[in-house]
Design a protein around this nucleic acid. Sequence first.
DNA 1: CCAAAAGTGTTGTGCTTACACCCATGG
DNA 2: CCATGGGTGTAAGCACAACACTTTTGG
Lengths: 245, 245
Amino acid sequence: MNKTGNNSFYPHVSVDCVLLGYNGDSLQVLLLEKNFVENHAQFNGMKLPGRLIYNNEDPDKAAQSLLKEWAGIHNAYLKQFKVFGDPERTSRPEDVNWLQEAVDLKIGRIVTVAYMALIRITSRKIQPAANLSARWCPVNEVPPLAFDHNVILKEALVEIRKNIRLDPSIIYRLLPPKFTLLELRRLYEVVYDQTMDVRNFHKKVKRSPYLIALDEKEENVAHRAARYYRFDKVSYNRHLGLTTM
Amino acid sequence: MNKTGNNSFYPHVSVDCVLLGYNGDSLQVLLLEKNFVENHAQFNGMKLPGRLIYNNEDPDKAAQSLLKEWAGIHNAYLKQFKVFGDPERTSRPEDVNWLQEAVDLKIGRIVTVAYMALIRITSRKIQPAANLSARWCPVNEVPPLAFDHNVILKEALVEIRKNIRLDPSIIYRLLPPKFTLLELRRLYEVVYDQTMDVRNFHKKVKRSPYLIALDEKEENVAHRAARYYRFDKVSYNRHLGLTTM
DNA sequence: CCAAAAGTGTTGTGCTTACACCCATGG
DNA sequence: CCATGGGTGTAAGCACAACACTTTTGG
């Protein structure tokens, strides 16, 4: 191994973003579809949103701009979680073709910084872009993706669980401002992929000073109406100061 | 912001390693001294071990090789923990000079992947290298470092505490194979920078099935001799399977 | 016998888990 | 009146924090 004077072989740097969304039912990840024709053959495949960073761009900023571009959101929870730098990660033939199509550069290799983000899926449509279409895909039904993106996704899911344990506030980003305890519990069950006891769950969350019961209840439901709650950021931050040390 | 065809402005990628060592007394970090003369002025300063990655090198491998180079060790706990990619991070004038001295390339900017490693400081000497000298420095007495290395160090210390909570086995890498509970407690106290109650500490660690009491005791100490313990990896892994899910 | 560190037990508090029934509402 | 989910309490076990004295050893 040796340094050479030829910069073009030094790695390029990209960001990739595992954008996780919740629609009140299942956890989904945003995938982009890549379609292009090469030598009269059609190539199809999906990938995570991502791109090379610009000359003078902070990777964190690049990830933020991806989030804005694809989800139209600029204040989501967004966290860098790992670098994937294996020199072979972009060398599968389909992936090489895809790269040459997308970027008009001879790319030696790409070191990518992986981010994860959490957003609430609303009715608002995801923006489609130039030659790509975006769609939400349940995390359990993700097809084989380009590059090492299946690995990146898997690691993001492990990471997000750790992060929610350390900082429960981030899970509330997946819920509307007012929510019932059933909705909250469903979300926990989806994220951790396990069922939870109703009574214990209620006791647990009611201990949290930042979960505030409202006077409002559901309306027009064919059963006893559930109370709405909201997450209070101010109380949460106060509470955090007391529990972290 | 725009892509250009000129690759030389794309970021270079480096690895930096926060190598934490314990000598039975305090937590130390390995720093390299950089000395060079420019325009008849002497430049001094310290930095974390690190370098650009080679053309076809996985950053993880690069970090491993740093570890081997500076600590002569190849099986330490070594973990990637964050990327530092602010375009301005290498632009302080002293740092620019240093870079031009060390690397005969015009460096636009460097995105660095930060690693942390834990090792036990033994009597064995740290290898000095070509134009650099290495030395251990207590983490509380670290001088201003090159680039953003003070920030990297600070984040590594936060990160290592999180990691030890999630995986206590890594703390035993800082102790000799046989150790007393006093030694173990001192280490925890140093890492978490707080004193711990002796009795509660004993109760806690004795609950761990992977901490094994030996029949050996200290010898020639001017007080009641303490029992030696050892960490058992096999029991630990068994135990882990039961507690993580 | 003194100095220095080893080693040990109890109590209260709070979190976790397991487990079953009545209540409110709309249709 | 029935189907649907809302909402609640108790007991056992375990982790955690606070707190003080006796034991062993060498000098």
